[in-house]
Amino acid sequence: MVWGVLQFPGSCDERDALNACRLAGGEARLIWHDDDDLGGVDAVVVPGGFSYGDYLRAGSIARFSPAMEAVARFAADGGPVIGICNGFQVLCESGLLPGALLPNDSTRFTCHQGELVVGEAESPWTSALEPGHVLSVPVKHQSGRFFAPPDVLEEIVSGGQVAFRYSPGSNPNGSLDDIAGIVNREGNVLGLMPHPEHAVDPLTGSEDGLAIFRGVIGAGVG
């Protein structure tokens, strides 16, 4: 199993993602934003941070990077891709996932240990998890309010594309339908705002996030 973690100027959580991938199992390496070749990796992580500073709109510049063009091809071929926080924003901006992430309704950055309820989506990323299972995973972002127009939201929900919801009463940002993470129709691309790569060691709070990374390995990827 070889993991590739994208690195943009302004990425913040790429080393944490490398660490999580290695703990889950396998080899992990960084992929520079300017590289249009993913080097034969088996799964891709688009990590958190503020790619290119995100002064315009979160993820809006990163989508144009050569590495993201390669990720789009990789995803179209069925390769597993996870976008975490800024990575989720980038995947939405790239059109690999529906919807958009708007500024939190508080207008403030929020960082806290959150509770995620596993949704009904079928995906290699959630293959090790039962719907309704609750994970303890950190939430930290400024623009995490999931939004989609009513018809698109209806399609996401009824199409079984919701991968994670914030537990009842804990929606931290005003996301529609408490949505914290979704997959594409095919299920191979997952985007989520909370940070499973920061939940891989009980010493630093929780190891519930490992199940997401291990799900891909268990699904027979690589």
Binding site: C12, D13, C111, H112, L203, T204
Partner: peptide, 26 residues
């Protein structure tokens, strides 16, 4: 205030800001 700061990036934060008197980093 503390919730407006990312206190965990870097994967070292054993004791986060809050009730404890000092933060602990591995």
């Amino acid at each position: 205030a503390f919730e407006q700061y990312d206190s965990i990036v870097g994967s070292r934060t054993v004791v986060r800001p809050g009730p404890a008197d000092a933060a602990v980093l591995s």
